[in-house]
Amino acid sequence: MKLRLTFTVNGEPAEALVDPDKTLLEVLREDLQLTGTKHGCELGECGACAVLVDGQPLLSCLVVSHECQGRSVVTVEGLTVDGRLHPLQECFADLGASQCGYCTPGILIAAKALLDREPHPTRDLIREALSGNLCRCTGYQQILDAVEAAIVRPGHASARDGRGGQS
């Protein structure tokens, strides 16, 4: 028996008929084909699968599909508003915070949740808030720099897509 799941994804109503044994991660990636959300363990041990559920960053690999009914989910695909990147996305791209980019969606989600609650975190607080996300590439420094830069970057800066010359 399939489960009819009705919820909100990235601000839009979503409905899916899913295998009830699936996790939110599997529903997002397989049934909604929102593959921006990643997985590195499926056991809660890496943070790659983080999404916002009702505004809180959770690990989608540990959320059962039944418990998504009626809730509001935001994935990395939902961070871009009106075709403009979120300041965090701009800064991550500009400052090398994303190397292979595989941990990036989860970290962006955790960072967004942080800035939504605390618009001016210290570097130590950013470290703590992101400590549920592993990255094997960057050594974290450029991620910290990027979050700090996003704190001061006004609203949605214009997208600058590798057009050379910018820092």
Partner: peptide, 10 residues
């Protein structure tokens, strides 16, 4: 910004 930076952060 690396050329694939936008793809990675979105």
């Amino acid at each position: 910004r690396r050329v694939d930076g936008r793809a990675k952060v979105t």
